[in-house]
């Protein structure tokens, strides 16, 4: 079932079109990457899902129904521009933000105690945010985003500004939440940072969606039959290579030869057995295109 669908949503500010008929659909329980360069329109789309702005045209469906005000309690949002009241105490602040999401004070406190214990930060309750380090404040920010146990979690540039330790913690917690059934949207311009954990992605460029789908399928579609083979170093490699294969790169590394080959469809076994007759194969793997490359490729194809 699709937890969220946008149907041809458009938004303009004056004469500038920020989103142009963007349709995406996100399945329940998946991790969805909303990818594209800065200024492509990702944040505008996310703000629409959070009902901070409304689309000029098109509609947004949440569990198959038109998105409405009450749905915000089922959505958790960590904006790119984020922060907390500096002078407010940690506990009070977390309760306040939870109350605004519709949680009762008592329930909020109970859940906060769980999370504070889990992150081993129980003694921060009465500290002010300004007394905490940036990394500490990030943990609080994360807790306040997920405290109301939303069905849909949206993270806009989640790893920017987080130190590596917290970024890792965040990643693990997000994967945990997915295990528990939450659906997650990652929005980022830094495609490498999320491609290995996303199930599906949508690429947005210049206010238009240019590509959407399952990550595996997309990579399959864009792969160029490139393989990396490592063999012990030898002077003449020509006898190893069968006809039709092309060496696109070769590196000598600590007595080993690392070759990048493009192999025509269905001739892998032939090549490998030809090599094995003459020498050892130390490693062999398929090279799949990175999201960055796919993005560049797609833009080239669209033009």
């Amino acid at each position: 079932m699709n937890i969220l669908e946008t149907k041809e949503v458009s938004k303009s500010y004056s004469s500038h079109k920020v989103l142009d008929k963007v349709s995406i659909s996100i399945k329940e329980g998946e991790i969805f990457g909303l990818l594209g360069p800065n200024g492509a329109g990702k944040t505008t789309l996310i703000r629409m899902i959070n009902q901070i702005t409304a689309p000029d045209e098109g509609e947004i469906l949440f569990f198959g129904n038109k998105l409405k005000r009450e749905d915000i309690k089922n959505i958790g949002y960590l904006p790119e521009e984020r922060g907390l009241y500096k002078k407010m105490k940690v506990g009070e602040q977390a309760i306040y933000l939870a109350e605004l999401k519709g949680l009762s004070k008592k329930e909020a406190k109970k859940r906060l105690e769980y999370w504070f214990e889990r992150f081993e930060i129980g003694d921060w309750w009465n500290k002010r945010i300004e007394e905490l380090s940036k990394g500490m404040a990030q943990k609080i920010q994360f807790i306040t985003t997920i405290l109301h146990e939303p069905k849909l979690l949206i993270f806009d540039e989640p790893f920017s500004g987080f130190d590596p330790l917290n970024a890792n913690l965040l990643k693990n917690e997000i994967l945990n939440l997915r295990e528990k059934g939450a659906t997650i949207i990652f929005s980022t311009h830094n495609m490498e940072s999320v491609e290995e954990i996303c199930d599906s992605i949508a690429l947005i460029n210049k206010s238009k969606k240019i590509l959407e789908g399952n990550v595996y399928e997309i990579k399959e579609k864009f792969k160029q039959n490139l393989f990396e083979i490592t063999i012990p170093y030898q002077e003449n490699i020509n006898p190893l290579i069968i006809e039709g294969c092309q060496i696109t790169n070769s590196i000598i590394n600590k007595g080993k030869l690392v070759l990048t080959l493009s192999i025509p469809q269905g001739r892998n076994a032939e090549l490998l057995s030809n090599i094995l007759k003459q020498t050892n194969i130390l490693s062999y793997r398929e090279i799949l295109p990175s999201m960055n490359n796919i993005f560049i490729e797609t833009i080239k194809n669209n033009e």
Partner: peptide, 11 residues
């Protein structure tokens, strides 16, 4: 503070 976007996602 950049707390405002967090707030307007709730109210």
């Amino acid at each position: 503070n950049r707390v405002v976007e967090v707030l307007v996602s709730s109210v």
